[in-house]
């Protein structure tokens, strides 16, 4: 017999570990990924592979040669960043731009803060926003979805439904006019993902399947997605009730753009979201309000990523202000 080990209690450990959580998220993203492969074909596969590979590579290089420490690329977090980055770009994105995005996401947004768990902002979103600002044309050049497309670059491109609405309104058209113009896909198509957009955001259904899986595995809780989506819906509903000719109906807001993707996969990122349940609800609320503000009155047609990043920046404040309910604090006896 060896020496007895002495350590503080507890002496047993739950089954969850970082790897399981990370790969759980990867599994949850597979439906949305498959949908993107279906509609955008080889281009989507190429973008996804490039993003994952470059994220892993940068993480490895930085940990190995810059920080000269242990490499933790197999913990799955870089894969998530890679997939999320690919989810946030159009399938026609040139590979070199994606590699730059990965470098920004991993190098600047993640490793420069100290790696996994230390980053204040969601790395993939930082990468996306960097790309959006640096290469606005390529980032808003959306190939039209075609089932089983094999072409690497789709010839036909078009704007996303949100961009169509934004453009229409800026031209002075009313919402019913825009909707009847024939440019907006049918709601069923938008629900399944048959519309222009970034790889991961098109199919609401696929994202919701992933979200349910995450909830089932207890990787995320309902608080952020529900309050995010709920706030967006209610805010949009109020605007729509005020003037349906100026503001589009709330359902449209829910199923277009990156709202679902953001609410399920990016706002729920453990590292950058608040710790307490109340804090998480506030966080989701803030994301929802900002999203609509940007979508309706902002310069960009889409505001989910900016909204989440902005809320990421106030997460430490939320953590300070909204503590969990402590036992014995509110005494209700009887």
């Amino acid at each position: 017999m060896g020496l007895l080990t002495v350590s503080g209690s507890p002496h047993i450990k739950g089954v969850d570990n970082v790897k399981k959580i990370m790969y759980g998220v990867v599994i949850a993203m597979i439906p949305a990924m498959l949908i993107s492969f279906y509609f955008f074909g080889l281009g989507a596969i190429k973008v996804t592979l490039v993003a994952i590979a470059s994220c892993l590579l940068f993480e490895f290089l930085i940990q190995r040669f810059l920080l000269k420490g242990k490499t933790t690329i197999n913990d799955g977090s870089a894969i998530i960043t890679g997939i999320l980055l690919s989810f946030n770009v159009p399938s026609s994105m040139p590979s070199w731009m994606i590699i730059i995005g990965s470098l920004v996401a991993i190098g600047i947004a993640k490793m420069s803060f100290g790696g996994l768990g230390k980053n204040p902002f969601n790395p993939a979103l930082v990468g996306r926003v960097f790309l959006l600002i640096s290469f606005p044309v390529d980032m808003t050049n959306w190939p039209k979805p075609q089932a089983f497309s094999t072409a690497l670059t789709d010839a036909i491109t078009g704007p996303t439904p949100l961009a169509i609405v934004k453009e229409g309104i800026s031209k002075g058209q009313t919402i019913p006019e825009i909707m009847s113009s024939g440019k907006i896909p049918a709601y069923v198509d938008m629900l399944f993902g048959n519309m222009g957009g970034s790889l991961g955001e098109i199919s609401t259904i696929a994202i919701l399947i992933g979200g349910l899986y995450l909830l089932f595995r207890k990787i995320i809780t309902w608080h952020i997605p529900v309050s995010f989506i709920g706030t967006t819906f209610v805010f949009a509903l109020i605007l729509w009730l005020i003037d349906p000719s100026l503001y589009i109906n709330p359902l449209f807001h829910l199923i277009t753009g990156g709202l679902m993707l953001g609410a399920v996969f990016m706002a729920t990122d453990m590292v950058t979201s608040p710790m307490s349940k109340t804090g998480q609800i506030i966080f989701g609320f803030g994301c929802g309000v900002l999203t609509i503000l940007i979508r309706v009155w902002g310069a960009y047609p889409e505001g989910v990523s900016f909204a989440i990043l902005l809320m990421n920046s106030v997460t430490p404040l939320i953590n300070k202000g909204f503590k969990p309910t402590k036992f014995g604090e509110v005494v209700k006896n009887g």
Binding site: H11, L116, T221, M270, S276, T325, E329
Partner: peptide, 25 residues
């Protein structure tokens, strides 16, 4: 069984906050 797993970075998953019976962090 007595071997503790290696300590990794805190990923701020908030599970410890969730399970704390006294509601502390």
């Amino acid at each position: 069984e007595s071997k503790r797993p290696e300590q990794l970075n805190c990923i701020r998953c908030a599970k410890c906050v969730e399970v704390c019976p006294m509601g502390i962090e």
